[in-house]
Simulated scan of single mutants.
Amino acid sequence: MKKIGFPAVLLIFFALSAIGHYAEWNYTLQFVISAVAVIFMAGFLGKATESVAHYAGQRLGGFLNATFGNAAELIIGILLVKEGHFDMVKASITGSIIGNLLLVLGLSLLAGGLKYKIQNFNVTLAGLNGSLMILAIIALFVPAIFLHNHALHNEDKNLLSLIVAGILIVAYLLWLIFSMITHKNYLADVTENTEEELPNDHEPAWSKGQSILYLVIATVMVAFVSEWLVHTLDPITEKFGLTELFVGAFVVAIVGNAAEHSAAIMLAMKNKIGAAVEIAVGSSLQIALFVAPVLIFVSHLFSQPMDIFFTVIEIAAIGVSVFIAKSITQDGSTNWYEGLLLLAVYGILGVSFYLV
């Protein structure tokens, strides 16, 4: 009996998700099918990204993976903003940041560390990533403190949100210029161009053109399925008695981050820990410094604008995630136990969010 290939399974779940949405199947069934479809597409996306990374280098490959992986998060965020679900959007942003820093990075360090005793990457890059993560915390913490201490009038909330969002976007774009152009070699991964440290490396299955094409196709498919997934969230939340905070921070974030999950773990197991860290940490930075600010600007295109003021719980969750991720990665060396520590913190936050 002939086995069904991965592309065929992907297309089957995409088709089922479309049929379920337009035929108005049971919302729970729609949610499960759409979530599985996104995960399959994420695996396909990860494979295409690894192929592109072979041609473009590990750092650019990691950046592309984070960018295309966050495409689902951005699309879901825009759709939620359009529907006015600002609390779920902020929870989703929170979940994406802590999910990448704790779950994705934790699983990558654990999987890579079980195969290789110690894995190393550029220590300077680790330090700069840590500084950028602290910038993200400052951008969330300072406005919230001013608002909660009544030092800021409500009518100034949107203005401050736009200014802070604009500063973060500029800082992120300048970081890309710094890391990808002016200081590219300075921040190169320690395993770059060292064949002896990449024993499992192999030629990609696709050409450069095919890899880029598949990245685009997968992203478009994710856009459609993400929209169908968003339409199921309200009834699912109500049916199972879940809070928007938990659904946004864990359910939506885990599904949206599936691309990073597959690719980062796969690269870590090939001793490409630099690329894995670039995906996990780089994706968190992209969410905090680019995606979240963009959503604030996009919200002004609709009837009600979204502000940048997160809850104390959300800021605390992001803060502890940044603290432990920075402390673990700042020396440019990782092992499996450090991955376990990150997963432990993720578990603590997950239970806490569920019980809120």
Rank of each mutant, 00 (worst) to 15 (best):
T194A: 06
G84N: 08
F309R: 05
T67L: 15
I265N: 02
E203I: 09
L60N: 02
W25P: 03
Q210F: 09
V170T: 11
A263V: 13
G113K: 08
L285K: 13
L173W: 00
D87Y: 13
S303W: 06
A8F: 14
G209S: 09
V123C: 00
V322W: 03
T194N: 15
L355A: 15
I324Q: 08
S283W: 03
I138N: 10
G339E: 02
Y116E: 05
L74Y: 12
I348H: 08
F178V: 13
I118N: 14
A259G: 14
T237K: 15
K208Y: 12
A188K: 15
L11E: 06
L215N: 03
I33M: 06
N271E: 05
T219N: 08
G20E: 03
V291L: 09
L135N: 01
K184I: 05
I254L: 15
G62Y: 03
A18M: 11
F31T: 02
I279E: 02
V356P: 03
W175L: 10
A126P: 05
Y346D: 03
I76G: 05
Y27C: 05
G95N: 06
F302L: 10
L128T: 12
K82N: 11
T191H: 06
A136T: 03
N70H: 11
K208A: 15
L125D: 01
I181S: 13
I265T: 05
Q30R: 15
S226F: 04
Y346I: 08
I265C: 04
I265M: 09
M266Q: 00
V220K: 00
D201P: 04
N122A: 06
E238T: 14
V222Q: 11
T329A: 07
L340D: 00
A18V: 14
S179W: 04
A344C: 13
A253L: 07
L128S: 11
Y337K: 03
H54D: 11
I315R: 01
T329I: 15
A42S: 14
G347P: 06
V164T: 09
I296A: 07
I177T: 12
E314C: 07
K326T: 09
L173V: 14
